[in-house]
Nucleic acid binder design. Structure first.
Lengths: 309, 309
DNA sequence: TGGCGGCCATGCGATCCGCGCATGGACGGG
DNA sequence: CCCGTCCATGCGCGGATCGCATGGCCGCCA
């Protein structure tokens, strides 16, 4: 049984003759006649009565017609939904981001996406960069805002769309000698007690370690802490200095001093998708919305940034 | 979009790879691959992610899969119903009969049909032979128990299955001179006041008139009445004699005398169907049930018939 | 009552779709 | 580093199915 058979049956029922149905379906009369014959052979019984004035459905034909109407309606619905998804008037996108991005540009990106594509259902989840990659691979996520850390590009099988390069700044106790400088040389941190988390759980920390490494010293990791809020508390207490990504400072504390580093280390924040999902309109739209939000956020912040005071 | 496309999508979703789906569907892998590609072209977006380890549905694919599952289930249901109707385990039959048959053999025929085919829905309507033919033609009825009267066969476009030849008997007032005979010659009715309805509304009356005609006389139609109950009342009152079909006597009155006629005029009672509906299993089954009931009824009645009582 | 027109079924030839086979490329595992 | 698995694509062919033409049937109308 094929959809054409059902369309033929429906049209014969509506028009009351095989010829008229053929006309409506843009087939010739013999073609429709044979389609009907085929359908009847499969049904093992007559479905339409042929009369010299036209055609009429039998009881079995009426029974099949009820199914046909529903099936064809559902097929139309499927077509409509496919078009809706393709044109971003429907569908769903599952996205994750990690805390500092959610505290900064991601919400306005989600907001913009929702405004542009109100019919697309957005599912958001707060996920750290590490687990996010695995969830993408599993297919549990469609788009993940992650940090590439030291990697020059995305892992194999993934695609990374750059959103923003987030610079690491140095957070100092207010009375720290280096706090008087407008810009702190990384080399000046040699020997200083620093707060740097474990590279295993905190990709950002690899960047910090590498920044010191490139200046020729191994940092004095007095505190192994990979939460920036906690790190700022330690800094405020005068116990150590900490490299903090700028986005992680969105809720700044007044009791620490923030200075740029001369080496301008950054973590590259990207929207990551599965390479195998390229071509998904909704993913592209979400990435675009995030990129717009990130650049808008960077522009605003760029003008106000690093102002002493 | 064709059903095969949906089957392919479903199987890919279930098996997790195009190759496995092809295997399950008894196609080659390239065939399924191309079916998918075609479906995706029509959907204007990717529906499955290809990975080196297999295949997985995209969001759009999942959306289409929901439709596909329902559509395919409905197609299966349609197949099942077609088979049920073809094998008389479902479906519907609309049947009519006229009063004297409903007072005699038709009920046991309906009962037998219901016992044999309990899943077939029976719709019964009491309809006189004249209108029944029109209802058949309209398609409002599937089977009609009618009388052929004088016609040797069914009207063009119809098929008539003989059920029983119902003989006309003569009903006489008890004190009528002809009541003494075991068998009444039609010729003896010449001049006698007779009850004969209008041939326009009562096909049976044509038979009565023709019976007289063939004996060379025009009957004395003292009463134009085409209801057999009313006619028997007139007979009982001694006003006239009446030819009554045997089946119309099922509730006999004690105050009239019934005798056979020498010419043995009959009305041929048939189950009529549309010629264009030959091949309908349920119609055939109903006709068979009626024929069985009629012959059983005839056999029983045949032994008791004509007994002077 | 006989021609006529509408409706449907069927034979025939051609076309195009779609399958199978064979091949190539990509990725992961041993 | 090779091999196994998985998917995409080029090619050739077989068969499904369409259009055209024809024939039969019935009803209408002159």
């Amino acid at each position: 049984m094929e959809l054409l058979h059902l369309r033929v049956l429906r049209e014969v029922a509506r028009r009351g003759s095989i010829s008229a149905a053929a006309d409506a379906l843009d087939y010739t009369q013999p073609a429709v006649s044979r389609q009907l014959a085929m359908l009847e052979r499969q049904a093992a019984q007559p479905l339409v009565e042929r009369t010299p004035r036209g055609a009429r459905l039998t009881a079995a034909g009426e029974a099949l017609l009820r199914h046909a109407e529903d099936i064809l309606a559902r097929v139309d619905a499927a077509h409509a939904e496919m078009e809706a998804i393709a044109t971003l008037r429907g569908g769903r996108v599952r996205i994750s981001a990690f805390p500092s991005t959610v505290a900064s540009f991601v919400p306005s990106g989600l907001r913009a996406f929702g405004d542009r594509h109100p019919d697309v259902q957005v599912k958001f989840e707060l996920v750290e960069p590490g687990p996010a990659v695995e969830l993408l691979r599993q297919g549990t996520l469609d788009v993940a805002v992650t940090s590439l850390s030291l990697a020059p590009g995305p892992p194999a099988g993934f695609r990374a769309h750059p959103l923003v390069d987030d610079p690491f700044l140095i957070a100092l106790p207010p009375d720290h000698p280096l706090a008087d400088l407008d810009e702190v040389p990384v080399a000046a941190l040699a020997g200083e007690p620093l707060i740097i988390g474990s590279p295993q759980t905190c990709p950002d920390c690899e960047v910090m370690l590498m920044a010191c490494e490139m200046r020729g010293f191994t940092p004095n990791r007095a505190y192994v802490v990979d939460d920036y809020g906690a790190a700022l508390g330690l800094v405020a207490a005068g116990l150590a200095a900490a490299m903090i990504p700028e986005l992680a400072l969105s809720g700044k504390r007044a009791d620490v001093v923030i200075r740029p580093l001369d080496a301008r280390p950054v973590r590259r924040i990207v929207a990551m998708t599965l390479d195998t999902q390229s071509g998904s309109a909704v993913n592209d739209a979400m990435v675009t919305a995030l990129a717009d939000a990130a650049s808008a956020y960077g522009a605003v912040r760029g003008t106000a940034s690093f102002a002493r005071g």
